[in-house]
């Protein structure tokens, strides 16, 4: 079953801006789906339409088979949303913000309090439950929005740039949390600017550009499209002459750094052997850019 199905979705703003030009995509139940695209591509507009914050011009959206034009209330019960911008009252206490959100879904105080406790504990905010939101750090505010988005136990969680401005350690913690949620069967849609995040978390990825879906494939299929990859090699002496090698190009960045751009099909062992024959010893290596980032840049540029 599809958790979300979008058919020929269009949005034209009063200003005349065509934000979406006929988007079609399906998200299967249980998937961790990434929606990527540059700023202004239409990601937030798409999420806005699914969550009723933006009125669509045309097209059809169904959530777990429920058409939003027929019964938006029923569809909304299935969705939890974590928006890009902080949109809670900064003067309210953490637990009030989360419990109130449950109340908007018709959940009674006792059940709301229990659900709120569960997610505040899981997200490390339980000790801060009586703190007003304005006193929280940026990372805590992000986690508060996730707890609020989950308090009514939605089957589909939509996260719009959930880790923006969050430090690396906390981001990794949030990734673990989201992966656990997904493993328990929750469908997750993620938009992010961190392609490393999408590569780690998402099983399927759609790329949106100028209001159109320009790619929609599983992560595995997408990464297969990458025909070249550049590695940064830390070497002892990069100034030595290196004879050409088929499907590989070398660039000496400085005395101890060498970049090797390797076309798909060439073995890394041969590259090391080749460098060894020229007396170049490799201490360590890493990918120059994230693999998904290379594909993404190639598509949207």
């Amino acid at each position: 079953m599809n958790a979300l199905s979008i058919k020929d979705l269009r949005k034209r703003y009063n200003s005349g801006l065509e934000a979406l030009n006929g988007i079609t995509l399906d998200v299967k139940e249980g998937e961790f789906f990434g929606l990527l695209g540059p700023n202004g591509a239409g990601k937030t507009t798409t999420i806005g339409i699914i969550t009723s914050l933006v009125t669509k011009t045309d097209g059809k959206v169904t959530v777990f088979g429920i058409d939003i034009d027929v019964d938006f209330s029923a569809a909304k019960r299935m969705i939890g949303v974590v928006p890009q911008e902080f949109n809670f009252s900064i003067f309210e206490k953490v637990e009030d913000i989360v419990c109130q959100q449950a109340g908007y879904y018709g959940i009674g105080r006792d059940q709301a309090a229990a659900s709120s406790e569960k997610y505040l504990r899981q997200l490390g905010l339980w000790e801060k439950r009586r703190t007003t939101a304005r006193e929280l750090s940026g990372g805590m505010k992000r986690r508060l929005m996730i707890a609020r988005g989950l308090v009514h136990e939605p089957r589909l969680l939509i996260l719009d740039e959930p880790t923006a401005g969050v430090d690396v350690e906390l981001r990794r913690g949030m990734w673990d949390f989201l992966e656990k949620l997904n493993r328990k069967g929750r469908t997750i849609i993620l938009t992010t600017h961190y392609l490393e995040e999408a590569e780690r978390l998402c099983s399927r990825i759609a790329i949106i550009s100028d209001g159109r879906i320009i790619e929609n494939a599983s992560k595995r299929e997408l990464l297969k499209k990458l025909d070249k990859e550049t590695f940064v090699l830390d070497v002892r002496d990069s100034n030595r002459e290196i004879a050409p090698l088929e499907k590989v190009s070398f660039l000496a960045v400085d005395e101890t750094t060498l970049e090797a751009t390797i076309t798909k099909g060439q073995s890394l062992n041969l590259v090391f052997e080749h460098l060894g024959r020229h007396g170049i010893e490799v201490d360590s290596m890493r990918s120059k850019t994230n693999r998904l980032e290379e594909i993404f840049m190639g598509m949207v540029e």
Binding site: S73, S89, Y104, R148
Partner: peptide, 17 residues
Amino acid sequence: STKFQKNIEEMLVSPTP
């Protein structure tokens, strides 16, 4: 102020009539 701070969205995304 609910609109200004955008926390009206908390209600709008929910099934609140």
